[in-house]
């Protein structure tokens, strides 16, 4: 499971496939104010990005993967 709620943050870790979409959607519906932590994320499926976008989610925790960083720069709120 690469989507987990920890200390009020939604952690996306490793490679996050489309199978995690429902889990992320539920996590954001239950915790609309929780920031996304992408610091340990090595890749995320476009479906997950779309969910974060519709949720107006904020990203906390700087991504370490250069591509994930480029994705984040494409337009989401950062803390």
């Amino acid at each position: 499971m690469s989507v987990q709620l920890q200390n009020g943050r939604i952690m996306l870790t490793g490679i996050c496939p489309v199978g995690d979409a429902q889990a992320l959607l539920n996590a954001l519906l239950d915790n609309p104010d929780a920031p996304l932590d992408l610091s340990g994320c090595r890749h995320l499926h476009a479906a997950l990005w779309q969910i974060a976008l519709c949720a107006g989610a904020r990203v906390g925790g700087a991504p370490t993967d250069p591509f994930v960083e480029i994705v984040c720069n494409s337009g989401i709120r950062t803390i």
Binding site: L24, L29, P32, A47, Q50, I51, L53, I70, G75
Partner: peptide, 25 residues
């Protein structure tokens, strides 16, 4: 790759109404 951007194909729905498996971008 230098930069990435996106434009929604339609007004994005609220989270509760989102079909997570439908591409919108």
């Amino acid at each position: 790759l230098l930069a990435l951007g996106f434009i929604p194909n339609q007004t994005l729905p609220a989270l509760a109404e989102l079909d997570p498996f439908r591409n919108l971008l």
